[in-house]
């Protein structure tokens, strides 16, 4: 008799999720915004705000990859093992893992809504963005609704694929507050 469950965990490590939440969750973002732009009432220039979020997204994903590799799990090990034998499996699934970790750790969702994950690419949605809420609260609705924050998600997705050697184009197909969710599509470039 074998018992995989007693030997391995297939789930994400809670410790890792907490660490990421602490460093890149909505509260952390609010703090960084405060530090960079002085918070409510301030209106940083578009380009300035865009590069702030691009930087935030990149660091968020870099740290996710670092911790995600450190806190591996059986699902990831099985995926890596499968990808060694079937090369086509690395795309998009390995990057998907880290995107899931990044969002699950910092967003108020229990699972990431995936719209497509196939050899063509990855598409997912973020329905109740905690970061967006924090930006509205910290910087006001007008600034938040300009969606400079999309650069964080675009950069995070880009980083998640680039890190594993995939050259991709990331597009935003839908966005709050107009739509009920943000949707990002990653396709091979």
């Amino acid at each position: 008799m074998t018992s995989a469950e007693t030997r391995y965990s297939f789930d994400l490590a809670e410790e890792m999720a907490q660490q990421l939440e602490q460093e890149f969750g909505p509260e952390a973002l609010r703090g960084e915004l405060q530090k960079a732009f002085g918070g409510g009432g301030a209106s940083p220039k578009g380009a300035q705000a865009d590069s702030f979020f691009t930087d935030f997204g990149r660091r968020w994903m870099q740290r996710t990859i670092e911790l995600g590799e450190q806190y591996t799990d059986r699902t990831y090990e099985t995926l890596k093992d499968a990808a060694k034998k079937v090369e086509t499996l690395s795309f998009p699934f390995i990057s998907q893992r880290f995107i899931e970790i990044a969002y699950l750790s910092t967003q108020p969702v229990y699972s990431l809504p995936i719209v497509e994950n196939s050899g063509r690419g990855l598409t997912f949605r973020m329905p109740f963005c905690g970061h967006f809420k924090a930006i509205r609260e910290g910087m006001g609705e007008e600034f938040a609704d300009q969606l400079h924050c999309k650069n964080a998600c675009l950069a995070a997705c880009q980083t998640a694929f680039e890190h594993f050697g995939f050259s991709v184009a990331v597009a935003m197909d839908a966005a709050v507050p107009k739509d009920e969710y943000c949707q990002f599509s990653i396709r091979r470039a």
Binding site: D11, L79, I101, Y110, S111, L112, V115, E116, S118
Partner: peptide, 13 residues
């Protein structure tokens, strides 16, 4: 493709 889309992880509610 949507009918094959699936997440890898889920946090326990």
């Amino acid at each position: 493709p949507r009918n094959y889309a699936n997440r890898m992880y889920k946090l326990r509610e």
